[in-house]
Design a protein around this nucleic acid. Structure first.
Ligand SMILES: [Mn+2]
Ligand SMILES: [Mn+2]
Ligand SMILES: [Mn+2]
Ligand SMILES: [Mn+2]
Lengths: 221, 221
DNA sequence: TAAAATTTTTAGACCAACCTAAAAATAAAA
DNA sequence: TTTTATTTTTAGGTTGGTCTAAAAATTTTA
């Protein structure tokens, strides 16, 4: 009973609410959905009518439990399909998002269940993002931006902040994929770029932009 | 540039044209799509506008080359996904149609290509229906209805005419799946039911309805 | 060939999902 | 606290896809 458009709005609201800790604004949703504020207001009314969001004019929106559950299921499906596309079909991690964006709307609880099993119940997707379980829960995994590491500290790449194809492709090219371990050698004061050493002793210089979009789990050395 | 609704109409027209060898009637499409003739006429105009069908008022429709290609691609995707669902996810052959009906609309040539490779380029789906190749071609496989076999003749099950869940489930229960070989023992004059002998010497009585919906490849004994 | 039955199209509406432009409410600045 | 700027909503319109009821075309029957 929920259209693809409705599902996409719920997911967008969920993701905005995840970051900012307040009622989600109309304009924020419009930006995320690449549409107009007027269209968003329109949809918010429909979603409120279906009790998927709590909506008060001019005051922003919040997902209800039902809405939150729907969004979480959608994210679960999105990420499971991404795992499938990378692990089984051999796509690169920068090629799967748009396909998953379509596949996530395929309805069928049994399908999701079987897909999950087939993929060995993965807990993270190809970008390091957590996959909710069938009950909509996921574990918190502490991670730090490379930009926040101190010189000498070491970590394993666990995820990305940006998901753009350009960024993911760049990372792949220089060998910075999930699970790779690296050490911060030094941070240049002038432009906040960083020098890192990889496991094979190879050294790389990364811009501030990169270091602010790369998540690591700090390792005790 | 083609919506899911448009794709479904094209597929319906294609399948009707496959059987009856004349222009496809509005009412036939309406029946297949479970909708009204008025809605069909509406859609036919849109499809003609896009040059996907040749449409002349009151005279029925025919797919253009472009429309035919689109329908074929859709059928290819539908059947490949059915193979995936059965072979990889372990669904039964009576459970996959509705899911494939959704999955066939996912856009992405690369996806279809990779899926095909992943499944080892199957040429038939779980119901014995041929899968078009990437160029939209498929081979003809001669097959006969069980109803048309002579007593004493033997064959291997290659497909079904009906695709209803009830029929497929029944066949599964009595062990009549693709590849099973059987021999026609006798046909009862009274109700046209048939007695068949399986490879393990087990005998089954099948109604006329069943025998008119089961395809076999006749084997020379 | 004229009348009746069937098939198909048109007319007119509805809903979901979008849009632009204008109005209203809220927040920020003076 | 006014004025100004920003945000949000409303008003009104478009498109795709559907519907029912009525009109028109075609086919069948008498
Ligand atoms: Mn993604
Ligand atoms: Mn992802
Ligand atoms: Mn099917
Ligand atoms: Mn099939």
């Amino acid at each position: 009973m929920t259209s693809q458009a409705e599902e996409n709005y719920l997911k967008a609201i969920f993701k905005i609410a995840e970051k900012e800790n307040k009622a989600v604004q109309t304009n924020a949703v419009a930006a995320a959905m690449q549409t107009t504020a007027a269209s968003v207001t329109d949809m918010l009314k429909r979603l409120a009518e279906k009790n998927l969001i709590a909506y008060e004019k001019y005051r922003g929106v919040q997902l209800t439990d039902a809405g939150c559950r729907l969004a979480t299921d959608l994210i679960r499906k999105h990420r499971l399909w991404e795992v499938f596309l990378v692990e089984k079909l051999g796509f690169a991690w920068d090629e799967v998002h748009d396909l998953a964006e379509q596949l996530e709307h395929v309805q069928g609880d049994e399908l999701v269940q079987r897909l999950d099993t087939y993929l060995n119940n993965p807990r993270f997707d190809p970008h390091g993002d957590p996959i909710p379980d069938a009950e909509g829960r996921w574990e918190f995994r502490p991670q730090t931006l490379l930009a926040n590491l101190e010189p000498g500290e070491q970590g394993i790449i666990t995820g990305v902040q940006e998901h753009s194809s350009a960024f993911l492709q760049y990372l792949g090219q220089v060998g910075l994929t999930l699970g790779v371990s690296l050490q911060l050698v030094e941070r240049i004061d002038y432009d906040q770029s960083v020098r890192v050493r990889l496991h094979d002793a190879r050294e790389l210089t990364l811009s501030e932009k990169v270091s602010k979009n790369l998540f690591l789990k700090i390792e005790n050395t």
